[in-house]
Design a protein around this nucleic acid. Structure first.
Lengths: 326, 326
DNA sequence: CTGTTAGCGCCTTCAT
DNA sequence: ATGAAGGCGCTAACAG
């Protein structure tokens, strides 16, 4: 319609320099008049890339997922790329489908959140040259795979130091599942702070739980019934902390008067509970951005640099912490 | 490698009946040995469909989004289809990108959540034969477009009836933005229940707010300072209700002793506040499922039946409501 | 039942 | 600066 060949139109659409301005103008005019746009699958077939990235949906809290997601989406948007969602509910059969989509070129790469296990799937994927990035490895993962996570240890350390600086000495910890990496690091940070302040570690003040509110509630009941009860509880996530506050309320203990409480995550619920919860903020959106950018680099360099990025957490002091009662 | 033609392999992979069992077996063996899988973009190019559908990410609450999302994902999974995310932050320029992706065949159809406006974009899309479904229209939308939403009116009516049956007569309402459809319907339900109980409508007990916690807080302060203050407040979403409870606490009013509170949504925060919030549950996951299934029908029938599906809400009675003090 | 052939719509050398 | 031609990997119609 513009009196030129298909090849020329292609060049115009791809903004190649080797087209005369007049031709370009003529083509663009017709294109916009006709509302033409290049069929995407043909493009993908021809140049071997789809501009799509896979992302798995973990079963955990919606808020966590949505925040990381939005970071990834933002970063990809700048490159005109999009996310394809894979609801592999940690079901192996479903994970296979993701693997398949990668291999068949539905997507150019994948961001895998909270991978369930040492998953041999992942390794095989990476070995076969698939670009992928893991966000928050739950258990030790092959060092070949790039990982983005938060600085759990430092965050936990700061939280504990905050309590110490307020004068607390009996600081209990309600932890998540022992095996999770994030949990181990938080525990390490907690211990480090105590050691630095020369507060001896007390095993009876450490309770393993499940990152759920009820778990925090039960653990807190146990802690608060101790003969010498803690003056502060560091719950390893906000859910646990909310459970702690519920238990405290039932026992007639005021927060932070009788008990200081610190959480981890800085989720929405922190400002729902009364008093508002002091916590450690995880930079979820930034983690998403970072994951996307690592993936994009793999895509362009065709080399997967094995690295592990830890983004800084930040202590957010609210109203649930204060000096211990005397 | 299996000694057959490409066409035959294609037939085997597509499970066509016209292949002899022996050939099929031979092909499948080689396929699995070699780890072969059909390139997806070629497939898409050839048969004109990508198996991908677009979903917009609204700016609102993560939880809302994640729930609907998971409903859609589940429904699509059964058809081996996936979601492509479009983070059009109600920015027109970004919405154009979605439009473009639809036209270029990146995706087969789209599910649009909380469309910002009477958006002429949407209409143009539908007119051009694009399969799409809207979830939760915010303002009146062209009747040509299929919509999935919750039965706001019925839900609000039940909530109000619940309060009436407890003996409340002065029941205030803190509403969302006047223009939103969901809000209008909730208001209608509220009025209907009052009328049925022959409780005259009192304008001073209706305050328009913004669906945010702070808005609920401010509105509640205003209501609770009235000379004749309400014995119950129906907040038109959970955020508002949480704000109400905060205001009540500050004024030394006990819930539900001095004041009953009802929310709407059944979001996570309902069980974070003390006491747990009575609310109206929106069937978000089911709405997602329904949207997906409407879209799939459009995809198969090539006809867009204009319809509007309202999924039932459900009153969830928790601890924030009780009989009024005398 | 299987192989051959012709596209699907774009991008990319290679000529001109 | 432009056009012609081949190919990306698959499906479908047509022979045999």
């Amino acid at each position: 319609m513009a009196g030129v060949s298909i090849a020329t139109v292609s060049r115009v659409l791809n903004e190649r320099p080797e087209v005369s301005p007049e031709t370009r103008a003529r083509v663009l005019e017709v294109v916009s008049e006709q509302g033409f746009s290049a069929r995407w699958s043909a493009r993908a077939l021809s140049n071997g890339s789809t501009g799509l990235i896979a992302m798995t949906i973990p079963v955990v809290h919606a808020e966590y997922f949505a925040n990381i997601l939005s970071g990834v989406a933002e970063a990809l948007h700048e490159r005109d790329m999009q996310i394809v969602l894979f609801s592999t509910q940690h079901v192996p059969e479903r994970e296979l489908r993701l693997v398949d989509r990668l291999r068949t070129g539905t997507v150019d790469g994948a961001i895998i959140m909270l991978p369930s296990e040492r998953s041999p799937q992942l390794l095989r994927l990476l070995r076969s040259g698939q670009p992928l990035v893991v966000v928050d490895d739950r258990e030790p993962i092959d060092p070949l795979i790039p990982v983005v996570s938060a600085s759990h240890a430092t965050g936990a350390r700061e939280a504990t130091e905050h309590l110490l600086s307020l004068g607390h000495r009996r600081i209990a910890a309600i932890t998540g599942p022992r095996r999770w990496i994030a949990n181990k690091e938080r525990l390490a940070g907690y211990h480090a702070a105590l050691a630095a302040a020369q507060v001896p570690r007390d095993r009876t003040l450490e309770i393993e739980s499940d990152f759920q509110r009820d778990g925090g509630y039960l653990a807190a009941q146990q802690l608060l019934r101790l003969r010498e009860r803690p003056t502060a509880i560091f719950a390893f996530n906000d859910n646990l902390a909310v459970g702690v506050m519920r238990a405290a309320a039932e026992l007639g203990l005021s927060v932070p008067g009788d008990l200081s409480v610190v959480g981890f995550d800085d989720s929405d619920q922190c400002t729902v509970v009364a008093p508002h919860l002091t916590t450690v903020r995880q930079p979820l959106v930034e983690m998403g951005r970072m994951a996307a950018s690592l993936l994009l680099r793999q895509l362009h360099n065709h080399s997967s640099e094995a690295l592990r990025v830890e983004l800084a957490t930040k202590l957010v002091v609210r109203a649930s912490t204060g000096p211990p009662a005397r």
